[in-house]
Nucleic acid binder design. Structure first.
Lengths: 333, 333
DNA sequence: ACTTTATGTGTAACCGGTTACTCATTCGAG
DNA sequence: CTCGAATGAGTAACCGGTTACACATAAAGT
């Protein structure tokens, strides 16, 4: 391994001078700089980040914690984060938490042990002690917390839109899937939907789910149609759940969207290719990841951050699991 | 930050003794050990990996390089790798290469700079100088190279199976999508398919593609039906390409599988939920990632590895984009 | 001509661990 | 009872960078 000493020797200067050249700090004579740069070239030297990190007590590493990269929603988030970080020369230590508190703790610990300068996390436990103790910036992604900056989509509005749409398109006995209780955006969606359902006086039922895992979603889908067989509209807690519901509906011989309308949440890839293609509330996942990274970078650089909570807009994506909207409401105007 | 010195002071011993306790190395009196452990507890001390890594010249970090985590095939690979690594206490520095040589080089450099102990890569440039120079183990994943150990699926056999199936199911004018020329598994699939097509004397055409990007696949799908409008069977280079072909076929009003059969490759999530659900050649992506990590760990631990190239089996997954197999072949027996 | 200030470079301490080496004490074998 | 081996623990060098500080020389003010 080529070290700064080798470069110093080769260029006939001290390590301090090489370091100055590397970091473009302090005075270095133009001729000296050239000598050093030549030496660096010739020896193909790259500074060891570990040594640097040790002295500075900070690395160029960011911890990224997601529940499960295998869930089609998360790759987009991850990619957004990576792209922005990469632009500023940060690298990611990546982990799947599987919605397990222990795994989260373990990862947070290794992030700290590796002098990570920040953590971006789609945690399931935002209030966890491990986060509170940290003295590096934390940004919650697709999550909300009162103590930490966060980037998330407007779940409340999403829920409202979903309910409005499903009602306008004719559903009268709606079942709403309530996502995990401890995840704010999931609750917001739920509340937004219920809000509109109540205001408009449309009958609705609720099915609770505890996680975002596909397996659980499948069970809940069965439960849904068993408990409320006359449901004619389902607002799912996310697209994976919507898929499970769609499958179950089809299995039971129900026509979608004629007999049951289904609206998902997220707009994960390929969801528009199902049959019928799923209508959903789109979250800008890539952008959310990107913004979270951006926020993180500002935090790391100690810039005063005006906006610590970034709420992203959502939109209804009309596809085949909802019926066409009757166009008789606002005839003129 | 709590350091080993704080622990030593608190326990009334030297740092060497604390280190011995931590690493369970050398002689430490039982009473002393308890004192130290108590101090560690009370101060909530965790050793700094960076310092450790600097002295040992190796970290607990593994570089993982994938073309694009957003491509539905890769999350599974990544997850397999992560799960196995996690079992042995290794962590991942993760990067997307976007099939760009420059990005790969940059990532390899940072892996080295951070004292990564190994690199697992789905590289597009296995012969690249940057890999050859490395003196840490490299495992290629879903790729093949003569100089490095690799884990990949049996593409040749997969191609053969695809061709056999599509022929048995009645296609007589097959178009084969040839994946990127520099990616061996893609070529193997292609060759396997062509091999069978030639042996059986079925007419076939070829469309070349340069990358695995969805966008390109869409263009090529258009090109395919423009150049060979009477195609009645398509063997795609992967599922994303198969989706593009399916879409284009449907757009042109062709019935799938009645007029055109389509076989994909990979078996990515949700592909079985399309309409029609895509028949495909399944690669055990999660297992491949897991095995690659396992191989890497053996390499790191310096174990003599008998099997440096691990080829995983593939299988045909029959779904709706291929027709039913005529069952008249072996009537009695 | 004489301070000041700016420029240029080297020495050595430091970051937080690990380990080679040293030294002291205890134990067991002959 | 003696001596080598086993046990237990501390000191300091080391890993590869960064930077405070010292020092020398050149340029700029007065």
């Amino acid at each position: 391994m080529v070290t700064i000493k080798d470069v110093a020797k080769h260029a006939g200067v001290s390590v301090a001078t090489v370091s100055r050249v590397l970091n473009e700090i302090g005075y270095v004579h133009e001729d000296t700089r050239r000598m050093v740069e030549k030496a660096i070239q010739e020896l193909d030297y790259t500074p060891n980040e570990v040594a640097r990190s040790l002295y500075k007590r900070k690395s160029r590493l960011i911890g990224l914690l997601l529940p499960d990269i295998t869930n089609p929603y998360f790759p987009q988030l991850a990619r957004g984060v990576e792209d922005r970080m990469q632009e500023s020369g940060f690298r990611l230590i990546f982990g799947n938490s599987d919605e397990s508190e222990q795994k989260e703790r373990d990862y947070i610990q290794t992030f700290v042990q590796n002098n990570a300068v920040g953590i971006i996390s789609s945690t399931n436990f935002p209030g966890m002690e491990s986060y509170r103790r940290l003295n590096i910036p934390v940004v919650f992604l697709d999550r909300i917390s009162s103590d930490r900056p966060a980037v998330y989509a407007d779940g409340r509005e999403g829920g409202r839109i979903a309910a409005q749409q499903i009602i306008e398109r004719g559903s009268r006995r709606v079942t709403v899937l309530q996502g995990p209780a401890h995840i704010r955006p999931a609750q917001d969606r739920f509340q937004g939907a219920v809000e509109v359902l109540q205001d408009t006086g449309v009958a609705y039922e609720v099915i609770r789910t505890a996680s975002f895992a596909l397996k659980e979603a499948e069970e809940k889908a069965k439960e849904l149609f068993a408990a409320f067989p006359d449901t004619d509209g389902v607002i799912a807690s996310n697209d994976m759940a919507a898929i499970a519901v769609l499958h179950e509906a089809l299995r039971l011989g129900k026509k979608v969207p004629e007999e049951v309308q289904i609206i998902g949440f997220d707009d994960i890839p390929l969801i528009g290719l199902l049959s019928p293609p799923l209508s959903t509330i789109r979250q800008p996942a890539y952008d959310m990841g990107y913004k979270a990274a951006e926020l993180m970078i500002r935090l790391i650089e100690g810039q005063t951050v005006e906006l610590r909570n970034i709420q992203m807009p959502v939109e209804f994506v009309e596809r085949g699991s909802t019926r066409k909207k009757p166009e008789n409401e606002y005839v003129d105007r």
